[in-house]
Amino acid sequence: MADIGIAAEPVDLELAEQFTTKAQQREAATLGMWAWLVTELLLFAGLFLCALILRIQHPQSVTLVTTHLKFWIGATNTVVLICSSLTMSAAIVTSRLGWRRFMLGALLATASLGSLFLLLKGFEYYQDYDEHMMPFLADRSYVLAHDQASVLFLDVYYITTGLHGVHLITGISILLWLTWKASRPAFLQTHQNRIEIYGLYWHFIDLIWIIVFPVLYVLNR
């Protein structure tokens, strides 16, 4: 590797008219994102609550479903998202340093890992389909039909992973848009904090999956 230092770009923020200081603007944006993340947490918490109640009411059915879920794909996907968290952290760190090219690379890596997660998830859904684990398909028999209550937990599985998937798709789209925006030279000088704000969101999607994985795949085995 050539021994040339990375040219650091100036890193700053453009003051919007409703704010008085940049510190105020920066903190407002961070607080706004945290407030949004609080709502995301409560949204998913409702599903976790459903899963818990089902476990209390139908423990055997829940265990039955859990043993049919693709444990190893879920585990691999967790690793993928933890990796994407690392690359997102790298993007934030380099954005603060003003290393724009490095940062763009880290953002793209994050988006790729997110897409890999979705691919694996899609494959998992396909396997579920293949194993007749989709009770809502009218023309396809359901492999656990003898235990009706199992449908309920399986539904929680589909809704939770689906909702998480929607968040991930949204996240990747915003990420690509942000990468495109950030590829322009003046970006870090005017909007560096967008990377940080977005980073919070991405980390939080990972955090949700870190809870989803054990709740659906591990705890009830």
Partner: peptide, 17 residues
């Protein structure tokens, strides 16, 4: 989800609450 796609957790016929 329950009404449109029959993916739900409240259906008492399946033991939902």
């Amino acid at each position: 989800m329950e009404r449109a796609f029959h993916i739900g957790v409240f259906d008492p016929r399946l033991g939902g609450d």
